[in-house]
Design a protein around this nucleic acid. Structure first.
Lengths: 136, 136
DNA sequence: TTAAATGCAACTATAAAAAATACATTTATT
DNA sequence: AATAAATGTATTTTTTATAGTTGCATTTAA
């Protein structure tokens, strides 16, 4: 299955911005996203860890943005979600020891992946949740 | 499962460059990559369509680069493999019609994905197979 | 005390990709 | 002409990452 966590996160963050300082609960978000509340909460928990949102437990609880929408970039959301992952996966089988190409490939591909990650992060750093809210 | 076709393609292309004008067969490549010849041939067939390699059938057949390694960029390889795919997937369920955020989200996320794709392609356009070969 | 929320762990289902299988076709060699 | 060695490609099976489900503990407002 494809990983939709970044796009779901962006959707959640824009929705929170749209609802300003109201607390929004995970059932509402799950219905909006046509998914389930557990999935929403898994994503939310990472966004909380990254201090991008605040979560309140108990009756009338819910979540809201942790700081102004204009101060939240997509790069921060991306980093919160993609913690130990990359956009582009590489084939990681042990290189054939006798093959010079294979032996260098892990490094070569690692550099390429790093380059993609940094150009992506550089691009995402320029976009804020406030920018997206203006398009609603 | 993760899609490793781009990284496998790069590995194949560098290996072809390394072997200069010799014809290399899919069994050799499959062993090098610790995968199977059918998978190699599926990838090869796209690279042939993109004119990045040439393939020769029959006994003593095999493949070789379709043009000088210095003229082959990673962007071309990326485009050949990612034809109808993007690095970043989005959640594509029908928006809740009554929700303004959901209704705009497809466009918003589409723009973001396009931005990532173009910054990635722009980065990959600067790297050639010859550049990688020098690192072997 | 209760209702309504989050938090989280464990399990199941789904779907995308890789691997396996089978066989047709092509071509060099003998 | 026959054979061996290669690609091409369609179909099926296996693997695995992600989403979805379930269940329950915990928290907090009313």
């Amino acid at each position: 299955m494809v990983d939709t966590r970044f796009s779901v996160s962006v959707h959640i963050m824009v929705s929170l911005a749209y609802h300003q300082d109201e607390l929004v609960n995970s059932d509402f978000l799950a219905k909006m996203l046509k998914t389930n509340a557990t999935f929403v909460r898994k994503i939310v928990s990472r966004l909380v860890d990254a201090k991008l949102i605040e979560s309140y437990r108990g009756k009338n609880g819910g979540i809201k943005l942790g700081k102004p929408a204009a101060d939240i970039t997509l790069k921060e959301i991306y980093c919160a979600m993609m913690d130990e992952k990359c956009l582009l996966a590489t084939h990681k089988k042990a290189p054939s020891k006798s093959c010079a190409v294979s032996c260098s490939m892990e490094d070569i591909l690692g550099n390429i992946v790093d380059g993609i990650e940094s150009s992506t992060k550089n691009y995402l750093a320029k976009i804020t949740i406030h920018d997206l809210l203006k398009k609603i």
